[in-house]
């Protein structure tokens, strides 16, 4: 049955890591335009650290909540930076949701909402602030909506991915109000937020790994 279990999460992290590695330079270039140019490095190295940690764990199958907690600790330990605490907090909120065991695959939206809640809590940002939340929040809402309409796990995941991509693209027209890009004020308009772009790659990996497993 389709579940959000350890197998799915392992596949997700591996795919997300690959996608981020492929886009490492692009993300750095995007970040260079409005930030300090290290976003691709942080994200690709961070997910590589997660995958290395999970590989070490894979001797015995870890429960999904433990997997997310280990991912959080590996990520923040590797990158620090701004994304370190944000993603670590998001992953820990996600872990709390999985404490009872795997979720039904139709609850993907709830898991994404938990990630988004953690990120918002730590970063004190909201939708429209030109941050990664502009991908995470629409994705969680879209997934929850399609689930309520009775969509299949694959449809739910695809809806999340599409909403994340649209959200990331829409940050181009926003003015940054959080993080270093906020110093640029109106000069930040016209560039997509690199954090939202990497978030859409990550959310895309949720959909892609669902297709791979089904």
């Amino acid at each position: 049955m389709s579940e959000i279990d350890s197998t799915y999460l392992m596949a997700f992290f591996r795919l997300a890591g690959e996608r981020l590695e492929e886009q490492r330079q692009t993300l750095c270039s995007l970040d260079g335009e409005i930030g300090d140019g290290d976003h691709g490095t942080s994200m690709a190295n961070g997910f590589a650290a997660i995958n290395a940690r999970l590989r070490d764990l894979s001797a015995e199958p870890a429960p999904p909540a433990r997997l997310l907690r280990e991912a959080a600790s590996a990520f923040i330990g590797e990158v620090g930076a701004t994304v370190g605490p944000l993603y670590a907090t998001g992953l820990l909120q996600g872990a709390a949701m999985l404490e009872e065991g795997p979720l039904d695959a139709r609850q993907l939206g709830d898991l994404l909402a938990a990630f988004a809640r953690g990120i918002a809590m730590r970063g004190k940002a909201g939708i429209g602030d030109k941050t990664m939340l502009d991908a995470w929040l629409p994705a969680s809402h879209a997934a929850q909506r399609v689930a309520a309409e009775g969509g299949s796990p694959a449809e739910i995941a695809r809806a999340a991915a599409e909403a994340a991509e649209a959200g990331a693209a829409a940050t181009t027209s926003l003015i940054a109000s959080r993080g270093r890009a906020a110093r640029l004020k109106e000069r930040s308009i016209g560039h997509p937020d690199p954090g939202a772009v990497s978030a859409s790659l990550i959310i895309g990996a949720f959909a892609e790994s669902r297709e791979e497993l089904d």
């Binding site: 335009e33 409005i34 300090d36 140019g37 290290d38 691709g40 270093r180 640029l184």
Partner: peptide, 26 residues
């Protein structure tokens, strides 16, 4: 950046940036 080896933003030959910080940002 050492990782990319490329200039992190572009600056025309007759331009300069005023009010820069210390993270290579514009």
């Amino acid at each position: 950046m050492p990782d990319t080896g490329r200039r992190s933003f572009s600056l025309g030959p007759d331009d300069m940036e005023f009010g820069v910080g210390v993270h290579g940002e514009p």
